[in-house]
Design a protein around this nucleic acid. Structure first.
Lengths: 201, 201
DNA sequence: ATTTGTGAACAGTTTCACAGCG
DNA sequence: CGCTGTGAAACTGTTCACAAAT
């Protein structure tokens, strides 16, 4: 799986999602091109990289392809634990995490530097002050952090997450995070997204 | 600026952000490597693409570089209007848009299919029912849409946005949006981000 | 007959290594 | 000197075109 090119991986992630709402028995690379805008040649290469062979004449067998893609992340079916760091408006919006229902990802803790927040808010998982981050993340073996703090706190708390041995960070702040090569960051801040849109073409 | 490679542009956007909080008078490519993880060679190429020459022996002159980057994106970004589509928890979290203060992006309208929401919520810009989207987006010449609706509404409202002549969409939903080639999409949904992190390990 | 899967050409991006500049 | 700027090489990803598969 590490021989799948980076851009291909990103497309495959989206392809899985696309298939989860696709009911036909088979799907062709051309159909996917029409749905996504990726060229059919790219789609075929991406799927070929999975080294499964699912169908020729009528396109790919949807279910087989979907199952294979699902296995790509949740191989061990064991849930991938996440935590929310920062319980401001954005963090609170993610608290219910309905989006992650029926996925291998599970939010198991929330943190905020204001004890006030962690005590007043309620959710289906425990909320703690950031002082307990290291302890909890280790105990629960949490793999991913969702960073929704204010700009001033972004880098310090990133470093705390890194110290805890986190594997990746979803960065909702507009800050450029400094992390060692062993940690990956996905930048999903509004400003970053808008700027990226604005500079392409 | 169209002769700057796409990956370089994305990095330059982040570099601009990085420099905005950097106080030393000069900065070397190695320092940037340390801060961002991009190799110093890549950094030098990216900056060289700007075709300015700002400093050798002591690295780049921070202010000159920063000014140049701001100008580069500034020309293209003369007050770019955005709208929020979907005023659920996530949409509401973005309502104050403090993140966009002091940037060329401005949120000028919000939409929701529930008139209830558009009437009860308050913000510094007007909220409308989605039935008025086409009219308002055209009148205000809004360029970007920020999509924070439920999954069922994602594709229908995307098509509405496309019909309005929008240039790009920031997609906070987990859905794969189908758009014509003239429209760009940035996928920043939590599930997409987590899957992208998980798949690249 | 239609669509996948893939070698080969191509295009784009990064790395290497070092010349040249302040 | 230390650091940038840049040819040239290496690498990565995409497109084309067609043979293989069912």
């Amino acid at each position: 799986m590490n021989d799948i090119p980076e851009p291909a991986k990103r497309r495959l992630v989206l392809l899985e999602r696309l298939l989860s709402g696709y009911d036909e028995k088979t799907i062709t690379s051309q159909k996917i091109e029409q749905l996504t805008g990726w060229s059919s040649a790219v789609v075929r290469r991406d799927i070929a990289a999975l080294k499964i062979h699912c169908g020729a004449t009528n396109g790919y067998r949807t279910e087989e392809l979907r199952n294979h893609l699902e296995k790509l992340f949740g191989e061990k079916k064991e849930s991938l634990k996440c935590c929310i760091v920062g319980l401001g408006r954005m963090g609170q919006a993610l608290l219910d995490a309905s989006e992650l229902y029926d996925t291998p990802f599970k939010i198991v803790a929330g943190f905020d530097s204001s004890v006030n927040k962690t005590e007043v808010l309620s959710s289906s998982f425990p909320l703690h002050p950031t002082t307990l981050m290291k302890k909890i993340i280790r105990e629960e073996s949490i793999s991913y952090g969702i960073l929704t703090v204010d700009a001033e706190e972004a880098q310090p708390l990133t470093e705390a997450l890194v110290d805890c041995g986190i594997k990746g960070i979803v960065n909702y702040t507009p800050c450029v995070l400094s992390v060692p090569p062993s940690v990956s960051v996905e930048n999903v801040g509004l400003l970053t997204a808008l700027e990226t849109l604005a500079i392409s073409l």
